[in-house]
Design a protein around this nucleic acid. Structure first.
Length: 274
DNA sequence: ATTCTACCCTGCAAGC
DNA sequence: TGCTTGCAGGGTAGAA
């Protein structure tokens, strides 16, 4: 489900409801997510005030003085701020009760049909091991074409898989990898080590442009993604190649093709991308 | 070190 | 209508 723009959209949606607010209760209905939810979350979070809501890669961190809740949405995870008495659905695995404000009692609810997401605990001052060994954020100056070029030397894997490697750069998932490679005119099957420095400069610029634009549009909704207000993202209208196999390229009219790389569907224009 | 495969789980759409 | 199959914005573990 969510790539960086969808997670950032989620962060922006929930943060105003959470920052400065105290957590009153923790309900763990199904702790068996990707990894078991550590029980101490239920003991340590109640009474804590949420100081900040941070995104790192596709993870969200709810920071408190006692430690931080580390959340990942997996493929189908959704976070919403709801009235405390909102009916509980089959896949509503976690509720964090929030102290009442002018809008009444609320809960932050984590819903995840496939349970590929996780809720873990990070001790104060520590960095969770899942956050170690992550590459730079794509929307910062730490990420650029030279980084891609340097890291790709000698690598034989397809450039699309290289771009989706979280040790290279974080947040670029299956949709935006195809989109960025189309925008940069690079064949996704090409060996990462065979792409020139100049073309990586173009690719890095297109990654930044597309992710920033997608955040503005509230992310991409294919089927599951909704933001914390229950609304879909509208970037799907802007997709140039993803999901468009057999349809004409919006640039040259050639039929978009599909291939599987690393067990993920990949879309590209055989004329525009070399 | 890098690369490749299998796997985690549920829901939905397409095909028969 | 019902069954089967394949596919889905994620990432890790373990093997080669």
């Amino acid at each position: 489900m969510p790539e960086l723009p969808e997670v950032e959209t989620t962060r922006r949606g929930i943060a105003p409801h959470l920052i400065g607010r105290r957590i009153t209760s923790v309900v763990l209905r199904r702790p068996d997510l990707r990894w078991p939810i550590p029980p101490e979350i239920g003991e340590l979070l109640p009474g804590q005030r949420i100081e900040d809501v941070e995104r790192r890669a596709k993870y969200l961190l709810l920071h408190t003085a006692a430690g931080s809740a580390l959340l990942h949405l997996g493929m189908t995870g959704v976070l919403r701020v709801l009235p405390a008495d909102a009916p509980v659905g089959k896949h509503d695995h976690v509720d964090l009760g929030l102290e009442a404000a002018a809008t009444g009692a609320r809960v932050l609810r984590f819903t995840d049909a496939r349970r590929f997401g996780c809720l873990l605990w990070q001790a104060p001052g520590a960095t969770h091991e899942l956050l170690e060994n992550l590459g730079p954020e794509p929307l910062t100056d730490d990420f650029d074409g030279d980084l891609l070029w340097r890291m790709s030397r000698g690598r034989t894997a397809a450039v699309k898989l290289f771009l989706m490697d979280n040790a290279v750069v974080v947040g670029v998932g299956n949709i935006y990898a195809s989109e960025a490679l189309f925008a940069a005119g690079i064949d996704p099957r090409r060996a990462a080590g065979s792409v020139s420095r100049a073309r990586y400069a173009r690719l890095a610029a297109e990654v930044k442009r597309i992710l920033a634009w997608a955040i503005e549009r509230g992310g991409t909704t294919l089927r599951d993604f909704i933001n914390p207000d229950g609304m879909p993202g509208y970037f799907v209208r802007e997709l140039q190649v993803y999901g468009r196999e057999g349809e004409p390229c919006r640039t040259c009219g050639t039929a978009i093709r599909q291939v599987v790389l690393g067990q993920r569907s990949t879309f590209w224009c055989p004329r525009c991308q070399k």
